Computed example of a mutant assay.
Amino acid sequence: MYIVLVYDINIEENSGQKVLRNTFKICKKYLHHIQNSVFEGEVTKVQLERLKSELQEYIRKDKDSVIVFKTRADRWLEKEFWAKEEDLTNNFL
């Protein structure tokens, strides 16, 4: 399945920077970094469950947010850039 993951980490708390850093590293293991707190990529159900499990160790349910948009494949997802276009996912041959 193809997913787009977006997160919002509250960094005003003492542990916020650590949560942000770990969230970024975990997402980068499974997905392509697109922009700030946005990742996308093809994952299996097992990989998605691992990603979720790893993130749950750090995400604070009362302060942070993670949203995952799922689709069957990237061909079902239309991407449109309205300003600076940096599509890092198209660098593959």
Rank of each mutant, 00 (worst) to 15 (best):
V6P: 03
K28V: 10
R50S: 12
D8H: 05
L20I: 08
K52I: 08
W76P: 00
V66A: 02
E85P: 00
E85D: 05
A83Q: 12
R72E: 14
E13F: 13
Q47M: 04
D87E: 11
D64P: 07
Q47V: 01
N22D: 12
K79N: 05
T44K: 02
K79R: 15
W82E: 12
Y30K: 02
R50N: 11
E42V: 08
E57T: 01
I59C: 03
T89G: 12
R21N: 15
G41C: 06
G16T: 07
Q17A: 15
R72G: 12
L88C: 04
H32M: 13
K61M: 07
A73D: 12
W82L: 15
Q56T: 06
K84N: 07
C27H: 08
R50T: 10
I67T: 13
V38L: 15
I59W: 02
V46G: 07
E78H: 10
K84H: 09
R60F: 03
E85T: 14
E13S: 12
I3C: 05
E57A: 01
K29C: 08
T71Y: 02
K45A: 14
I59A: 04
G16M: 11
D62N: 15
D62K: 14
E78I: 05
K29P: 06
E54H: 08
L20T: 08
V66W: 03
L51R: 02
K79P: 04
G16K: 07
T71V: 05
R75T: 08
V19S: 03
K61E: 15
K79E: 07
E86W: 05
F81H: 08
N22M: 14
V19E: 02
N90C: 11
E54D: 11
K25S: 15
